[in-house]
């Protein structure tokens, strides 16, 4: 199936600003899905609120554009009720980790099979450039006009600590790696997190004097490195890219199937003993 068949052309052009990285995430995601060869009817995309969330409207899957921060909670209900569906949950950084932080860690802990994508542009773009929990100390924003004193989460460390069974990170500059990691995350049976560092030249770039979208992409190239590289040993400030965790763990829906079996066996035993089950 061609990439174009995965999008709803009726609703283009999209609302993202010129230079925004979110379209590149969409591109990488669709290439990953095409490579795996998933049918459009078996994919459900659930998004929250913000620039990132609009991605759901443009893809021709079963799509749900929900409320701020709660995408993973909606996705949990969908997956649990129909485990055969593939759940993809793109979120922004504020969406996933500020208002949605609690849902994020609990979804990771539960290990239900779905792919959470954190489109991290380090800013609330749709509301015009306020700092997010991923902006980081010293960044400028409309709500930190004298510099930000909030420290940032490390999405990878947070996800690992919360129990995610697949954790990856890449950037919009590394388009091929992005498609590759997303593909592996989607195939992975369990809760997968992919942080994609994405540029927002309009809100984050401008306030932090990071230049054009091209400059910001160059910045991703220069300030990131593959996991465990020599460059990282020399310069610990570099941000590592790649797959940090990829492990087999009991998946929630499969585990619940066992609960169903156990509950049904209980009924059977009691019946044999001639007891009537009221509860």
């Amino acid at each position: 199936m061609a990439i174009r068949d995965y999008i709803r052309e009726r609703f283009f052009p999209h609302i993202w600003c010129p230079g925004c990285g979110h379209g590149m995430v969409l591109n990488g995601l669709l290439r990953a899905i095409e490579k795996i060869g998933l049918d459009k009817n078996e994919i459900v995309m659930v998004s929250g609120i913000g620039c990132s969330a609009r991605i759901a409207g443009y893809v021709d899957f079963h799509t749900m554009h929900t409320i701020h921060g709660r995408a993973l909670a909606f996705a949990t209900g969908i997956k649990m009720s129909r485990p055969e569906l593939k759940l993809i949950v793109p979120m922004g950084d504020g969406d996933a980790l500020a208002i949605g932080g609690n849902h994020f860690i609990h979804a990771a802990r539960r290990n239900m099979d779905m792919t959470a994508i954190v489109m991290n542009n380090r800013v609330y773009g749709m509301t015009g450039g306020q700092y997010s929990p991923l902006s980081g100390y010293g960044t400028m924003s409309t709500t930190s006009p004298y510099s930000n004193i909030d420290h940032a989460f490390d999405v990878v460390e947070l996800s690992v600590a919360a129990g995610a069974s697949f954790v990856g990170r890449t950037t919009t500059y590394h388009a091929k790696q992005m498609a590759d990691i997303l593909g592996q995350a989607i195939i992975h049976k369990g809760f997968s997190v992919v942080e994609i560092m994405s540029q927002c030249p309009t809100c984050f770039g401008r306030q932090n004097r990071l230049g054009s979208a091209i400059d910001m992409l160059e910045h991703f190239k220069e300030n990131t490195t593959p996991i465990g590289s020599k460059a990282k040993q020399k310069n610990p400030d570099l941000i590592e890219r790649g797959i940090f965790v990829q492990k087999k763990m009991p998946e929630y829906c499969s585990e619940y199937e066992k609960i169903i079996e156990r509950a049904m066996v209980t009924v059977h035993h009691r019946d044999r003993r001639g007891h009537r089950e009221y509860n």
Partner: peptide, 14 residues
């Protein structure tokens, strides 16, 4: 919050 969100999601699958 998550409880209501989850049942809304499940309702959409029928």
């Amino acid at each position: 919050i998550a409880s209501l969100c989850a049942i809304i999601g499940a309702s959409l699958t029928g």
